[in-house]
């Protein structure tokens, strides 16, 4: 059983620390993943919190074949899709808010992604379309296998392979425009 599953089981058995551990272990990665849907870090943070609250209130069982993390990301993805359905019109953001979001995002990148070259890649990824952002985040930053990524994104493994290939080409092109060459791609 992975750490997330153990923490969740503890929570289901009545130990509130279980959910606290889940927040600690998954919060930052989940916010970045959700950001590939919303493009707004503060909204993504709220959606990450909503995802944890869903776990805590609905207490669903992980009956999928995947790990706890894959399952959690699937719930988060559904939460993001629900949010986008309800808020299809663009909301206005003030300049002050934009500056705060940028600053928060930089801090989160430093604490979660850490490596400078990966941060560069992350910033380039943000310029791609949402589906490419999602798949690249899961594969390159969360180290999900194609099978796990397929489970989260509700696609066949073959579709994921094709998507990763196309997303990688788009990312390379974006990085080259900015004068970077990233050999691990």
């Amino acid at each position: 059983m992975d750490n997330g599953s153990i923490s969740y089981q503890r929570f289901l058995n009545g130990d509130e620390n279980g959910i606290v551990e889940i927040v600690r272990d998954y919060k930052d990665g989940l916010i970045f993943y959700l950001n590939s849907f919303t493009g707004n870090l503060h909204i993504s943070e709220d959606l990450a919190e909503d995802t944890f609250v869903k776990l805590g209130t609905k207490k669903p069982q992980n009956k999928s074949k995947g790990s706890f993390k894959t399952w959690l990301y699937t719930i988060a993805r559904n939460t993001a899709i629900d949010y986008l359905r309800r808020n299809s019109k663009n909301t206005e953001i003030s300049i002050d808010d934009i500056q705060e979001i940028i600053s928060d995002e930089e801090n989160l990148e430093q604490s979660y992604i850490k490596e400078e070259r990966k941060i560069t890649v992350h910033r380039a990824i943000k310029k791609l379309k949402s589906e490419y952002q999602q798949v690249l985040w899961l594969v390159y930053f969360e180290n999900c296998s194609n099978k796990e990524t397929a489970a989260v994104m509700k696609k066949s493994i073959h579709s994921i392979e094709t998507l990763v290939y196309r997303a990688r080409l788009a990312l390379k092109s974006e990085l080259e425009k900015e004068g970077f060459i990233y050999e691990e791609l």
């Binding site: 509130e16 959910i19 606290v20 503060h42 919190e49 944890f52 609250v53 805590g56």
Partner: peptide
């Protein structure tokens, strides 16, 4: 941005509200 503790406290508080 919320710290881990802030978010964890928010989550616990919302779960308790829901249960009540």
């Amino acid at each position: 941005m919320k710290s881990y503790d802030e978010m964890a406290n928010n989550v616990l508080s919302r779960i308790r509200e829901y249960e009540t």
